[in-house]
Design a protein around this nucleic acid. Structure first.
Length: 418
DNA sequence: TCTCCACTGGAACTGGAGGTAT
DNA sequence: ATACCTCCAGTTCCAGTGGAGA
């Protein structure tokens, strides 16, 4: 018996539960799709087309709706000789500026013999924009430029200013660029500079979070395909839907939950997927997200987290920033590492807060003690130590903290009790 | 109502690591 | 060799904050 036997007694085909799966029909988004279609119609009619922006939290169907609409648009456009359409798709997930997005677009358009790709630094911004305009102009016709997760570029919005005006400014002659921006952040629009806002002349489509009923209707057909008959007990899909609806209203979350529940059931050789698998899956996914967040911190981020873990181990919590800073500096000294300013440590603390790793309390004792913050861990100390122990530099300190905590009986490894 | 404590967080700047171009 | 590009973590400076006590 091998360690890795093939075991498919739960999953028939996990594909429909994959992030990249494209369903052949989109559920619960009829109004949005209708609006989307109206917005794209001018392309077929050879009329000027507005830029389109989709707003909605993650997992509300923006990307999948766009893939769906564009594949229809593409095949329909092919039937008209006078419609010349090209589509370029860029995910801005790891791109934090207009510059980087422009580089990515150029590389995307130069369909990537490695030799042609341009590097991500070194050129001036205008240079990269010029290269981009050249590539677009070479395409001709209508060029749809999809910028997924465009909110990542923050307020570096030069590209959104430049692209829509490229034609009227004479940078391109043959091409009509149409931007489809997809944003997870409703506020992104407000953060754009005023000059960008009125050049974009955009059509907006809002994707609200799904409720439990909608999520159920999205999950059901996927579940039917993904699992063998009779494997799924009937409350599982509603439960996944309910959890996800309560939390974020994200279809992605609901689908992941369902998939993870299936994997847990399969791993323990269960013949059916039951409610408990969903609950366990929920815990598991939350845990993974926190671990990932902690692992991706910079060394200084780890050091700050480490200092807070020490306070937690000693029971000195919540701790105000100046005391935490003391501990932080002594840890840095012990590690023979650079220490950063107090101001910078506060930035790290607010990063940790964003990741949901710590809790911040605002205190104000007025005239006697002024205004300050206090911090404590929002995840089990054991989880933090696990990550630090696996981070070579912090191994020893983390071990010391662990034994301190053990002495004081403050270690509690049970995640779900939090 | 006013004052004032002691931090908070915005903003402008820096220096070094990536890179291109001449 | 030199000049110049972007990005990033970091620094320095300081106006702003809001409740307790006068």
């Amino acid at each position: 018996m091998g360690m890795f036997e093939r075991d498919q007694h739960v999953f028939a085909d996990a594909g429909p539960l994959d992030d990249s799966y494209e369903p052949e029909d989109i559920r619960e988004r009829d109004d949005e799709l209708a609006k989307y279609q109206r917005a794209l119609q001018p392309i077929i009619d050879n009329r000027p087309t507005s830029n389109i922006f989709l707003y909605g939290k993650t997992g509300t169907g923006k990307t999948v709706a766009t893939k769906y609409m564009l594949s229809h648009l593409e095949s329909d456009a092919a039937q008209y000789d006078d419609v010349d359409l090209s589509i370029v798709w860029t995910s801005c997930e790891n791109l934090s500026s207009s510059y980087q997005v422009a580089v990515a677009l150029v590389n995307e358009l130069r369909d990537a013999q490695d030799a042609d790709r341009i590097s991500t630094t070194g050129y001036s911004q205008q240079r990269v924009f010029d290269l981009l305009y050249d590539e677009l102009d070479a395409l001709g016709g209508t060029a749809i430029i999809v910028l997924d997760e465009i909110d990542n570029i923050g307020d570096s919005d030069d590209l959104l200013y430049g692209l829509p005006r490229a034609r009227s400014n004479g940078y391109v002659d043959n091409v009509q660029p149409v931007i489809i921006g997809i944003s997870n952040d409703f506020q992104f629009r407000d953060s754009l500079s005023p000059k960008v806002k009125d050049t974009l002349a955009e059509k907006e489509i809002l994707f609200p979070p799904y409720n439990a009923n909608q999520l159920r209707s999205i999950l059901s057909p996927r579940a039917d395909k993904a699992f063998h008959d009779g494997v799924l007990s009937e409350d599982v899909v509603p439960l996944c839907a309910a959890f996800a609806a309560q939390d974020t209203g994200s279809a992605r979350q609901a689908i992941r939950l369902l998939r993870e529940a299936g994997e847990l059931a399969q791993a323990e050789d269960a013949s059916t997927i039951a409610e408990d698998h969903v609950r366990d899956a929920q815990d598991e996914l939350e845990k993974n997200q926190l671990y990932e967040g902690m692992q991706e911190l910079t060394p200084q981020g780890h050091a700050v987290l480490c200092a807070l873990a020490y306070h937690q181990a000693l029971g000195e919590i919540p701790v105000r920033s100046r005391d935490l800073y003391q501990r932080y500096t002594s840890i840095c000294d012990r590690l023979d590492a650079d220490r950063v300013s107090e101001r910078r440590v506060r930035d790290h603390l607010s990063d940790l807060n964003m990741l949901g790793l710590i809790t911040v309390y605002e205190r104000n004792e007025g005239l006697s003690a002024g205004r300050y913050h206090e911090y404590e861990l929002d995840v089990p100390l054991q989880a933090v130590l696990d990550v630090l122990l696996a981070t070579s530099r912090f191994e020893d300190v983390a071990d010391h903290i662990r034994s301190t905590a053990a002495d004081q009986n403050r270690l509690q490894s049970d995640f779900s009790s939090y």
